[in-house]
Amino acid sequence: MSATTATKKSGPSAGPPKGKPRKPRRAGWWLPYALLAPAIIFEVVIHVIPMATGIWMSFLKLTKMFISNWGNAPVIGLKNYAVALDFNSAVGAGLLKSFLITVAFTILVVGISWGFGMAAAVALQKSFFGRGFFRTLFLIPYALPMYAGVIAWKFMLQKDTGALNHLLYDNLGLPGDKPFWLIGDNAFWAVVIVAIWRLWPFAFLMLMAGLQSIPNDVYEASAVDGAKPLRQWSAITLPMLRPVNMVLLLVMFLWTFNDFNTPFVLFGGSQPPAGDLISFHIYNASFLTWNFGSGAAMSVLLLLFLLLVSGVYLLVMNRRSKRA
């Protein structure tokens, strides 16, 4: 209401405007907006609204009493966060433990996948007979539908009938009893191995693409100066792949930290404590006890942590690249 009265007062009768005279709109001024609109609308619908809903949910007591009518769920402020961060209670302690397991899982998976990817990319850099075959072979885990791949691992990791135990104990004759891989402490290693198997072809693909952009004469020149392959790798390949690595490591970190599908398919409904990765932990916290407010609060905490890590990482890396 106040806006309309204001325009009336400052209407044409109030004299010429004090600022610059307004340009008449050009024909077709709306076109850029119209072209941007679909992208913005979808961005809002697909990303912004669910995120905002998730954050809003984290302040509610959204248990099963209220799930059929969200509007009635009482606002409880930061209580969900207090419970999640009270590390002396069962819920908080469980979240902390799951977080630490996920950190270890992420470091191992990203580090080893990157190492494998780099080794394979460098090995296949020079052209030789059969290079195309190996490139395709190495990319198979990435091309396989995720469920099919992980379920195959699930079969291989069975205790009595699995291929892995058969190979280790029946064929190679390791002493002792066949161990469980999907329950107990070995579950951690099982999920690490499967995650590496899934992730390393991506690192391989990215690094292989990056290697194509390094001119061959640099290597030739260094060879003339007497550089051996290891020196070439550390002095030429690594620095020139820096931009690729920067993005690659960040993306792999975020994917791995959030990995839900691998543990979910591998362990089914009940994950062993040793393989209690954080996305799965949050899913259980929400769906097992129908406490969606608490689950949302944990998700927001995870989001904040990942934002912090990504922000610091980009800040540090960009500052360094400016200095260089």
Binding site: I46, H47, P50, M51, T53, G54, V251, L254, W255, N258, F260, S279, I282, Y283, S286, G295, A296, S299, L302, L303, L306, L307, S310
Partner: peptide, 11 residues
Amino acid sequence: AALAITATGCS
């Protein structure tokens, strides 16, 4: 993009 996947993963 990766963060958005996290945030919406729950829904």
